[in-house]
Each structure stands twice: as C-alpha cells, then as structure tokens.
C-alpha cells in the first residue's frame, strides 16, 4: 500500500508542488522586473547581465583566499551532483521512461561512482563548515540545515540503492526525492533556478550604469 502511495499519488503530488512552486517563484521574479528604468543608460544592460551570469562562477578576488575550502568543496559538490543527476544510467532511464521519451549516453559506472563520491565529500565538508565555523553558523538558518540534510539523505538513499534490485531501497530513494521536491520551492534550494536571474539582474543593473560587476 505504501509502495503504491509513493509510486503513485505522492509522486504526482510532489511533482505538482515542485513545478507549480518553481513557476510561481520564477514568475514573481519576472513580474518584479517589469518596472521601466527611465534613466539614460551608460552601457548595455543585456551584455552586463550575460557577462555577470558567467563571471560570478568565480569567487570574488578579495574573498577567495579566505573561503578556499568552501569554493573547492562547493564545486566538488555541485559538479558531482550535476553529473550524477543527469548522467547516471538509472536516472537517464527514469527520465526517458517517465518524462522525455528520449535518453542520452550515460556515464560509465565508475565515473558515476567517482562523481557521487565528489558530491558526498563536498556536501559533507560544506555542511560541517556551516556548523563549525562561527560566522557560517550565525548566518545559517534552519532552512540551510534542512536543505543540506535533505540533499544528503536523497544522495545517501540513492547510494544505498545502487544494486538496483531491492524495491524497498528504491522506494526509500524515491520517497526522499519526493520530500526534496516538495521542500524545494519553499527554500533556498530554489537557488538552482534563481541564480541565473539574480546574477542577470545584478549584471543588468550595473551594466546599464556602466559599472563593471
């Protein structure tokens, strides 16, 4: 019964929450931009926006030496997670069967393992740094911790189900993914989508004023 619930209604419910939440969030960002800037422009807003989307991948030069651990661990985690999310064979198969109808070449198994190891190590370092560094601890809210732990649980249940043969483990992974999807639009996990408009907005704002950002 629980099995049917996780595979059926709860899955659709989480998808609805996830997508409607994202559309709602992104929509409100887009509508917030509709104010017309009447000032005389001193530079291109568009080029500033596009440039900033990419320049912000590198940390601020003044900050970088102080947050090297977070940069390295951050990239390890995000790249690892990206790779195993979109290039792991079982994920591609799932997307192909349930959503897209087409698939792409998955990573070999060993690359999948290495990617997930990078992701695990990065996430562990980031979360522990959040707890152990007094400044990070102070500026972290419950949301940050819940998001970190939820992401970790999703990854952990995925790794426990690697043999791909026990239904209970697959359901556990799926259930944690569903919780993650439901939590996603209401939390800072939204940064997976909002980082682009937020960078673009800053870039456009500065670009229009002819300031490098």
């Amino acid at each position: 019964m629980i099995m049917d619930f996780i595979d059926g209604p709860f899955w659709y419910f989480s998808l609805i929450v996830f997508f409607s939440g994202i559309i709602w969030n992104m929509g409100s960002i887009v509508f917030a931009l509709s104010k017309v800037d009447l000032s005389v422009s001193r530079g291109s807003a568009v080029s500033g926006a596009i440039k900033t989307i990419f320049t912000r991948f590198a940390a601020d030069k003044g900050m970088a030496p102080h947050i090297r651990l977070q940069i390295i661990a951050g990239y390890m985690f995000h790249l690892g997670l990206f790779a195993l999310l979109f290039f792991a064979a079982p994920h591609i198969l799932f997307l192909e069967e349930h959503f897209l109808g087409f698939g792409w070449t998955p990573m070999p198994h060993w690359a999948f393992i290495i990617a997930s190891e990078f992701a695990f190590l990065g996430l562990l370092i980031l979360w522990l740094h959040r707890i152990l560094n007094p400044v990070s601890r102070l500026i972290s809210t419950a949301d940050d911790h819940i998001a970190s732990i939820l992401t970790f649980v999703v990854m952990l249940t995925g790794c426990l189900a690697l043999l791909e043969s026990f239904t209970a483990l697959r359901l556990l992974h799926r259930f944690s993914v569903e919780l993650f999807l439901i939590y996603f639009p209401f939390s800072r996990l939204m940064h997976a989508f909002t980082f682009i408009p937020s960078r673009a907005f800053t870039g456009a704002w500065f670009g229009r004023r002819g300031i490098s950002s």
Binding site: I113, I114, S116, E117, F120, L121, L124, L156, C159, L160, A161, L162, L163, S165, F166, A168, L169
Partner: peptide
C-alpha cells in the same frame, strides 16, 4: 535483512574512497 545488507554493502563500497581521501 538482505535489504539492510545490500544497503550496507553499497554504502560501504561508495564511502570507502571518501575515507581514503579524508
């Protein structure tokens, strides 16, 4: 038990290299 054992084995195999790195 085999569910737990399978989870343990996969988790053990995956986390081993992280132990080595740290």
């Amino acid at each position: 038990f085999s569910v737990f054992a399978s989870a343990s084995k996969e988790g053990h195999n995956l986390f081993g290299p992280i132990f080595l790195v740290s």
